[in-house]
């Protein structure tokens, strides 16, 4: 099988003068699935996602990689949400894989049922993915998700985290970061924006379930994302990958900046890229060249209010979150600081 995670994982090559991980100078077998002509196009063109949609990008990268890893033997269960709506009003579908949408909060349970059916029919070469947004994962779906983890069902759950309920019009979810403006956390009152915590970390919750593989990824680093998906598909049992997917509409960012916003979230320490398994954190992606939190926030209107002088404490909260992530997960290291 070409493009095994091991061979891809060696690639930490950045194009000269940019911050982008490139394909151009790589051997063909080290290139990403997306860069190959024989990619499956599991999520085909013609769907109804907004310009610059990080979720569409993330789903396309992840599912094509999973298709490659499973020799196209893949079934997906999808939670209600943007991904479901923009890909499939009947009789059209952007999915070229067997795909089912049932409800908002049960994608992992439906996937567990599919995996059970495949097992009982002796078709264990067929692998199952459940996928949903952060609302369907961190809030309404977390009961079923915890059940799938707890039983260690042979399901990879992918959460496309855009940090709010985008499909219903940008309402706060438990993955919404502190201070962010959403339709239900407007920048008014004593605590403008999201007053609650700093976003529930389902990756850490997943690690606490001691499932064999957990990772966070971001649409700005295609190599890393694909490697993690392909690695996950080579493991049996419950696995969880959360992909950071900017939402230009919900975040008030420029559609053309989606990759940049995603990269700066990671490089500022606001969204750590982790790998875990069996109860432990087993790896972190070091920040290559740290950017200020403010530079990340300024790309998004949802944080515009934190730059008003009277909201200085909100800005401090956000900076503190990044500092805490960097300290807690040791995101900076000497060799990367020198780059």
């Amino acid at each position: 099988m070409p493009n095994l995670p091991e061979s891809q994982q060696r690639v930490k090559f950045y194009q000269t003068g940019t911050f982008t991980v490139g394909n151009r100078l790589l051997d063909s077998e080290q290139r990403t699935v997306q860069a190959t002509l024989d990619r499956s196009n599991s999520l085909d063109s013609g769907h109804r996602a907004c310009q610059g949609c990080g979720e569409a990008l993330g789903a396309r990268f992840a599912i094509d990689a999973a298709m490659r890893a499973t020799n196209n033997q893949l079934i997906a269960a999808n939670a209600t949400g943007c991904l479901e709506v923009f890909t499939t009003p009947y009789p059209e579908t952007a999915w070229s894989i067997p795909w089912i949408h049932s409800l908002f909060g049960n994608a992992s349970a439906v996937a567990s049922g599919i995996a059970a059916a495949m097992k009982v029919k002796g078709r264990e070469e067929v692998r199952v993915i459940a996928q949903g947004g952060d609302g369907g994962t961190t809030d309404i779906g977390i009961g079923c998700l915890s059940g799938t983890f707890d039983r260690n069902d042979d399901v990879l759950y992918i959460c496309y985290n855009n940090q709010a309920y985008m499909n219903t019009g940008v309402q706060r979810s438990s993955a919404t970061p502190a201070a962010a403006r959403t339709a239900t956390t407007m920048p008014v009152g004593a605590e403008p924006g999201n007053a609650f915590q700093s976003g529930k970390s389902v990756p850490l919750i997943a690690i606490a379930h001691q499932i064999p593989y957990v990772a966070t990824a971001s649409v700005h680093d295609l190599h890393d994302l694909e490697v993690k998906v392909m690695k996950a598909m080579q493991i049996r049992g419950a696995r969880y990958i959360e992909i950071f997917v900017p939402c230009p509409l919900g975040w008030g960012s420029i559609p053309g900046d989606t990759i940049k916003v995603a990269r700066m979230a990671v490089e500022s320490g606001m969204y750590p890229l982790l790998e875990g398994g069996n109860g432990e954190i087993i790896g972190v992606s070091k920040i290559r060249r740290r950017v200020p939190v403010d530079a990340y926030l300024k790309l998004q209107k949802r944080f515009a209010h934190v730059f008003k002088p009277e909201n200085a404490s909100q800005l401090e909260r956000l900076r503190a979150i990044a500092e805490n992530n960097i300290r807690r997960f040791d995101l900076l290291s000497k060799e990367d600081d020198q780059s």
Partner: peptide, 18 residues
């Protein structure tokens, strides 16, 4: 983990032909 999960799992397994 719940009745919601119970029937949801059956939805998946039935849709997969079991």
């Amino acid at each position: 983990e719940s009745e919601f999960g119970a029937l949801s799992a059956c939805i998946g397994s039935s849709a997969a032909g079991a």
